[in-house]
């Protein structure tokens, strides 16, 4: 049975400002949901609610029917939902391998387990995100792209069934984006996680996601396949504007 991550009726207010207004989403393990919208539309807030970093004002987040929005952040990770940061936050004084090892050790459902498979699991992840050659470098010595891969690898190593990726491709050159998208797709095919991808780089979202959710001013204004969404007049007007013709396939 595949796992399912769902958010129902999420409202998030900061003082008098409503950042999220009755947003719902659902995705199965193995599928990718793209999350797009103009700046300030609530994408990052939604990711923070899904990852347990913020509590919703009302509404709930469910993993396989279990409510997870009241759990502390680290318990959400252990339950199987891990987030990557927009600006990578590696442990700079730990080696790349140790970075992944920390996540593999603590992120699983049975933290501190003495499983004999841990070293192999770490090697597998280093291979998947193409950081094997850098395994013994300190994380502070990595390039931006490598740090992003490490961030991704670390989230994978927690054993999460759902990843929440916050602008993973921002700040990379077009070549690097292409390469990173390839890595992502290969890893996803092999590991089979589900993902919510917040992204500004439209091409990346459209090629990765099976479904796309569009936010505007805290409300979901459209949901569908990438093809449907980019043709939706409301979306074109609210978000894509005149650039729509450039991204439509």
């Amino acid at each position: 049975m595949t796992a399912r991550l769902a958010a129902k009726g999420i409202v998030k207010r900061f003082g008098g400002v409503t950042a999220l207004d009755d947003v719902s989403l659902a995705l199965d393990q193995g599928t990718v949901l793209g999350l797009i919208g103009p700046n300030g539309s609530g994408k990052t807030t939604l990711l923070n609610v899904l990852s347990g970093t913020m509590r919703p004002t009302s509404g709930g987040v469910f993993l396989d029917g279990q409510r997870i929005d009241r759990l502390p952040g680290y318990r959400v990770v252990r339950a199987g939902v891990a987030k990557t940061h927009q600006i990578p936050k590696p442990f700079p004084g730990l080696t790349v391998r140790e970075n992944v090892l920390v996540a593999a050790t603590f992120g699983g459902r049975a933290p501190m387990r003495e499983g004999a498979d841990l070293p192999e699991q770490v090697e597998r992840i280093l291979r998947l995100v193409e950081l094997e050659p850098r395994a013994h470098a300190f994380a502070s010595a990595l390039t931006v792209q490598e740090k992003k891969r490490l961030e991704f690898g670390r989230a994978l190593a927690t054993g999460a069934r759902f990843l929440l990726l916050d602008e993973t491709f921002a700040g990379l050159s077009p070549d690097e984006v292409r390469n990173s998208v390839e890595v992502f797709q290969r890893v996803q095919a092999e590991v089979g996680f589900g993902a919510v991808v917040v992204e500004h780089v439209m091409r990346a979202v459209l090629s990765l996601a099976q479904r796309v959710l569009v936010l505007e001013e805290g409300r979901a204004i459209a949901e569908g396949t990438p093809q449907e969404v980019v043709r939706d007049p409301g979306v074109i007007e609210a978000y894509l504007g005149s650039e729509a013709t450039n991204v439509a396939p």
């Binding site: 990852s51 952040g73 680290y74 990770v77 252990r78 891990a82 987030k83 990557t84 940061h85 936050k89 590696p90 442990f91 700079p92 004084g93 730990l94 140790e98 090892l101 920390v102 996540a103 050790t105 603590f106 992120g107 699983g108 933290p111 670390r154 989230a155 190593a157 927690t158």
Partner: peptide, 18 residues
């Protein structure tokens, strides 16, 4: 290892399940 990670970056440590 977990404590070293915590000392390096608390938010990241939380994000990997510590």
């Amino acid at each position: 290892l977990g404590i070293r990670a915590l000392r390096e970056d608390e938010d990241a440590a939380r994000a990997v399940g510590i």
